[in-house]
Design a binder for these strands. Structure first.
Length: 663
DNA sequence: TCGAGGGTTTTTTTT
DNA sequence: AAACCCTCGA
């Protein structure tokens, strides 16, 4: 195409507040469409970018980053908040490729990782100890369990809610600002009679965390919000250094996060949020897609820009996706369109059983590869991570390398948590929950004795611990002496995380072997852990990363990634957010599984399942296969006949093709 | 009080 | 398959 010289653009560039006109390296106007361009050149002010699936949202943000840097703004004064740190890194890399390495100096990450960094630096302004430990969900649940055991809850005959139920309702309350009582009433009405006890537990929980410098995920956000609003002079100075704020996936932010956004924008008021109300899938974390609709209320001067042209998928896939979202109760007034009119109809594939579904995918994947589609361009998506178990077996048999995202994390396995507990105690002697975990590893120490030792530790720390516990616990003494000496030896030393991890490993190994019958299977995880520790210079950084950005590779997958660069992606739909592939399989589209039976009672949760399906199918560029097994194993009833998911049942022939698998 | 053994129940999604 | 609950012998 011939190059055009456009006078208009120079005129627009002059609208910026730069004193000298800038000669841009990148031809923003011609590399972007109108709406994208408008967003990319936006400088000062508040912007709401509504971007449908595949409309080049990331591209637009990347260009805006490059544009701001080209315009002379300091990259580190630009803050990019995304859903995962991977997403942030990818955007910065792309911007760096577009322009130059200045772009990788942009600040970015998740709300939680940003909170972590900020609070480590400035937390003292609000009285926070900067050596705090971050608790992940299961840590928090363990503490709740401990507290539950400590305060004697009258031995009611009725079942008391479990630790995860208590923690979930508690966390939801903090993330949404809805009182705990209301949450229990709405979601767990059958536990309403325990409300006083639950409140008591959460009270003790809060005090416990505050006393021992422990922050859970929610606390990171709460303290950050608190700091921004009330950190006075320090916060003010900090905020002055943030010129531009960009927030991706805004539809999945919750009340707490939108408060933070407001706090961040309070001085410079240069903010752009990006999202798609039809892709909100995190309500279980307190997200509310109405947040994005209410954004203009929070910022009355917000300008809205809409991206509607899809560059990702074929028209047939878009028609299918539009059909799914059209039946939503709450309408999302937007119709995706594309110029890419060619393409196969999406296939709705019915298999007799789960294994047949797996074998279909294996075969189709191999065929696609023969047709020239690289494995890296193919993904299998599912509602819940266990849906892929059978498929994983078949893929292994067929020697197809894959990596699985989402589901049970490496870091959540008991043996890895054990090692982490040692490292935590080394950084924070007051981390009683980690102590508890370590103590229980030792023969002869159960909940009661551990409890006694914890009391000593919380009172006196490590000093004289042995003398105090000696008369108390004659039988287990030499073990404990060893343990305390070991911890003492490592505490306060300046050593590399890998060095410390190695020493912990040596100490832990005998206990590991006697604790787990299947230690052979688990052993590899420990080695992986040691490997990961090599990447860090500072123990605190290492531990923070493990909580905030845990490696999601577990034993099975690592072996595949080591050997091959090319691999098939298996992923939960939640973890597939924002990504795209040439060919996509959505499996287990069965009533009760997807949508999950958990969502049947409530209209809002059912609607979220629908959006989830929408997200899943809009990941596909060229080929889309939605499959369901007709006979499926049900835990309660054994093998039963199943109904295809309501989202795909009875769909018109013009929108999708029915495939029936035969042997 | 510990820990082993057996029986039951339970399963979404993530920072 | 793992988490939880209960019982019982040491």
């Amino acid at each position: 195409m011939a190059k055009k010289y456009v006078l208009k653009r120079t005129g627009r560039a002059d609208l910026s507040n730069r004193s000298a006109p800038v000669n841009f390296v990148i031809d923003y106007e011609h590399e972007l469409n109108r709406a994208q361009y408008e967003a990319a050149i936006a400088e000062n002010g508040v912007f709401l970018l509504i971007a449908g699936a595949g409309t080049g949202k990331t591209r637009t943000l990347v260009y805006r980053l490059a544009r701001l840097v080209e315009s002379g703004y300091d990259p580190s004064s630009i803050l990019l908040l995304t859903f995962t740190r991977k997403a942030a890194r990818e955007m910065m890399n792309r911007a760096a490729g577009l322009l130059d390495s200045r772009c990788s100096k942009v600040s970015g990450g998740t709300f939680h990782s940003f909170a972590n960094l900020t609070l480590r630096k400035f937390g003292s302004a609000i009285g926070l100890h900067n050596g705090f430990t971050i608790l992940d969900q299961s840590d928090s649940e363990d503490i709740i369990n401990l507290i539950r055991g400590q305060i004697n809850l009258g031995d009611s005959k009725k079942r008391f809610p479990k630790k995860d139920t208590i923690y979930k309702s508690f966390s939801l309350s903090k993330n949404t600002g809805i009182p705990l009582e209301k949450i229990i009433e709405d979601i767990y009405p059958h536990f309403l009679e325990f409300l006083p006890d639950i409140i008591k537990i959460t009270d003790v929980f809060e005090k416990y965390k505050a006393k021992n410098a422990l922050l859970d995920y929610d606390d990171l956000l709460i303290y950050l919000s608190h700091f921004l609003d009330e950190g006075a002079a320090v916060a003010h100075r900090f905020l002055k250094g943030i010129e531009f704020v960009m927030v991706d996936e805004y539809q999945d932010t919750n009340k707490l996060q939108s408060d933070i956004v407001r706090g961040l924008a309070s001085i410079k008021r240069n903010i752009m949020v990006v999202g798609d109300d039809a892709q909100s899938i995190y309500s279980f974390r307190g997200a509310n897609f109405k947040n994005i609709i209410n954004f203009p209320k929070m910022f009355p001067d917000a300008r809205m820009i809409k991206l509607e042209q899809n560059y990702r998928s074929t028209q047939t896939i878009l028609d299918f996706a539009n059909h799914i979202i059209d039946s939503a109760v709450e309408k999302f007034p937007k119709q995706l369109f594309t110029n890419n009119t060619s393409g196969n109809l999406p296939a709705i594939v019915s298999a007799t059983n789960e294994n047949m579904q797996s074998r279909f995918i294996v075969e189709r994947v191999l065929e696609l590869r023969e047709e020239g589609v690289p494995l890296a361009e193919i993904a299998v998506l599912f509602r819940s991570s266990y849906f892929s178990f059978d498929l994983e077996i078949e893929l292994n048999k067929a020697n197809i390398p894959f990596v699985k995202f989402g589901g049970m994390k490496f870091i959540e396995t008991a043996h890895v948590k054990d090692i982490i507990a040692f490292l935590r105690v080394i950084t924070n002697v007051k981390d009683l929950i980690s102590w508890y975990r370590i103590l229980l590893l030792h023969e002869g120490i159960g909940p009661k004795k551990a409890q006694l030792i914890l009391e000593e530790i919380s009172k006196y720390g490590l000093t004289n611990l042995v003398d105090i516990t000696k008369p108390m616990l004659p039988k287990v003494n030499s073990d404990l002496e060893n343990l305390f000496a070991f911890i003492k030896k490592l505490t306060g030393k300046k050593a590399l995380p890998s060095d410390l991890s190695g020493q912990v490993y040596d100490y832990y190994y005998p206990h590991f072997k006697s604790t787990y019958d299947d230690h052979n299977k688990r052993h590899k995880d420990l080695e992986i852990f040691l490997n990961i520790s090599e990447n860090y210079n500072d123990l605190q950084d290492f531990l923070a990363d493990l909580a905030l950005e845990p490696p999601n590779e577990s034993v099975v997958d690592i072996s595949a990634t080591d050997k091959e660069k090319e691999f098939l992606t298996l992923s939960t739909i939640h973890s597939a957010k924002g990504l795209e592939w040439h060919s996509v399989f959505v499996i287990h589209a069965v009533e009760g599984f997807f949508p999950s039976s958990q969502s049947f009672e409530n209209l809002d949760t059912m609607e979220e399942e629908r959006r989830l399906m929408y997200v899943a199918v809009t990941r596909a560029k060229q080929n889309l296969y939605v499959s369901y097994p007709m006979n499926i194993f049900d835990r309660y009833r054994g093998v039963t006949f199943s109904k295809p998911s309501r989202f795909i049942a009875g769909i018109d022939e013009s929108l999708a093709e029915e495939w029936l698998l035969e042997e």
